[in-house]
Amino acid sequence: MYLVTLTDFLQQVVSGIASGGVYASLALALVLIYRAMDVANFAQGEMAMFSTFISYTLITSFNLPFYVVFPVTIAIAFAGGVVIERIMIRPFEGKSVITLVVVTLALFYLTNGMAGLIFGYILKSFPSPFSSAPISFGGIFVTVQDVGVLGVCLVILGLVYVFFRFTKVGLAMRAAALYPESSRLVGVRVSWMLALGWGLASAVGATAGMMIAPITFLDPYFMQPILLFAFAAAVLGGIESPLGAVIGGLTVGVLLALVGSYLPAGQNLRLPFALVIIVAVLLFRPAGFLGQATVRRV
């Protein structure tokens, strides 16, 4: 059996928080789209995967440094997200849940297949922007990588917050999501706000992809488990709450790290554990940590 030492435990918690930052970013991307159009974007992970492949190509084929590639990829991801919304999602705005789910599944297949076609199926190791040198905090070793990943994710999340809270476009987007009819009356172009939301979600997802790729390796399937963890995070935090997504992401990151290292066959149980989180939260507190229970008129 395992001998659980406190240091070892804290070690797992810390590394869980780092990957939790990634889950939080992708969960935030999901929340952004959910708030805008009430649909879970099943293609979010694949879009992030595709963006990560773009950054990989920029790094390896054009020998660009990471600090150039990072913003360029985010810009491409943003533009890609807007284009996808205009072409693929717009015809279905306001359709039933099943239609929207199937459309995002189509996007899922399309992105996955295109990535396989263009970039191939061989596992690639993604060069990490951070060194894996450990730093010691009172006996607990934290790698520069962990700190860097968490730092980048928190900065991105902070920027998204600032954007929504303090800019006019951000305000318009929030209004369009909450009260589309009234917003249209005061001159907000609601449909374009949805496109911006997709662009933003795509960009945030791209960050998550580029941050997790050095840890997991890169192939067209690498984001699928991450997407499930992000769903678990979003549900745990309350699927309508951006702050909840962040808290949920960090919590899920820590829980998964603990499950992975302390339960027997823990690595195999990470995905089923995400299922348990989703079902348990939806059963006992459907609104999540920070969501509000909705009242429905019949």
Binding site: Y34, D38, F42, V97, Q224, L271, P272, L275, I278, V279
Partner: peptide, 19 residues
């Protein structure tokens, strides 16, 4: 119901193979 059921069953689909 709706999207939540889609999420839960999505998680189910991903959970069985690793088990």
């Amino acid at each position: 119901s709706g999207i939540y059921l889609a999420l839960a069953t999505f998680a189910l689909a991903l959970s069985i193979p690793p088990i």
